[in-house]
């Protein structure tokens, strides 16, 4: 199966009086890894659930491979949403894997077997008896081995220790390179996962803040590093996202582009310019208005 394209058109979801998603619209091109970022309660899980046909939108449309996914047998067969803890068969680990293998036409049994070894999952243990981290690892195994044309990971790393998380990121990237498909990964651990993203979507309070390529986002800000006095003089009046100081050296993250003249002046002052970190940008964009002012 070829990777699916994902398109959201003015998507809104309400829970009674609460607006979980409000007119969200963006596109994820087939065969890309998209990071879905947002604070707690921003609407990430609702968005992924709607895309995966777990629920209907209140308004607007979700199009997966050009069709609405809800109760669409062809499209649903190509979507795999892995939520925290995984929606797996309440049985032994090997039974849960066999079940996924029987249903998923794109299942890779050898990859699943290798990942089970790598994450040290006890095959004969009951899924209920697994720790939170191991359950998350089982969800990760099913998500990767399913090789679904649209794979959605909703904070799948929760409970995993650092080596397991990095193993997951490595496996995801390696398998994606070998078998490109569309992957959406929601996460709070931005520093850990930003290297994976080709496309980034940031939502806050149910509204879309940013949907852009990682490359373009990296150019939407700049870090200025150098002697503290020179840095402060350079950034005076600019939109500062973050300031760090170590001894007489300061590093300031600015939001916005620098023109050629500003770059020349920074060079004259002996300052080093670098790309903005996604986490800094995320914190700035999602900060409450009183803090951002």
């Amino acid at each position: 199966m070829t990777p699916f394209r994902l398109e959201l058109q003015s998507l809104s979801v309400r829970y009674g009086a609460t607006r979980a998603l409000d007119g969200v619209g963006f596109t994820v091109e087939p065969g890309t890894i998209c990071g879905l970022l947002g604070r707690n309660g921003s609407g990430k899980t609702t968005l992924l659930s709607t895309v995966a046909a777990f629920r209907r939108p209140t308004a607007g449309r979700v199009l997966v491979d050009g069709e609405t996914p809800f109760e669409n047998a062809r499209v649903m067969a190509g979507i795999c949403l892995v939520r925290e803890g995984g929606d797996v068969l309440d049985d032994r680990v090997d039974a849960a894997l066999r079940y996924a293998a029987r249903i998923r036409s794109t299942w890779d049994a050898s990859l699943a077997a290798r990942l089970v070894e790598r994450f040290e999952l006890p095959r004969r243990a009951s899924v209920k008896a697994l720790s939170r981290g191991k359950r998350s690892a089982l969800g990760a195994v099913i998500g990767l081995a399913s090789r679904a044309p649209l794979t959605l990971f909703d904070e799948v790393y929760l409970g995993m220790d650092a080596p397991s998380r990095y193993a997951f990121y490595d496996e995801l990237l390696a398998d994606y390179m070998a078998h490109p498909r569309t992957i959406v990964l929601s996460s709070h651990l931005i520093d850990e996962v930003e290297r994976l993203f080709e496309h980034v979507v940031i939502i806050d309070h149910g509204r879309l803040l940013v949907a852009d390529t990682s490359e373009s986002l990296a150019r939407s800000g700049v870090t200025v590093t150098g002697p503290a006095d020179a840095v402060d003089a350079f950034v005076a009046g600019a939109n500062v996202l973050r300031r760090q100081e170590l001894g007489r050296t300061a590093a300031v993250t600015l939001h916005g582009h620098l023109d050629t003249e500003a770059e020349r002046r920074a060079s004259e002052l002996g300052l080093t310019l670098g790309a903005v970190g996604l986490q800094d940008l995320f914190v700035h964009l999602t900060a409450p208005e009183k803090d951002a002012a």
């Binding site: 669409n72 649903m76 929606d87 797996v88 079940y99 679904a148």
Partner: peptide
């Protein structure tokens, strides 16, 4: 109630 979320999560329709 046990199989509804599992089946949908594995890409099956509710009607199936």
């Amino acid at each position: 109630t046990q199989y509804l979320p599992v089946n949908v999560a594995h890409g099956m329709t509710r009607r199936s």
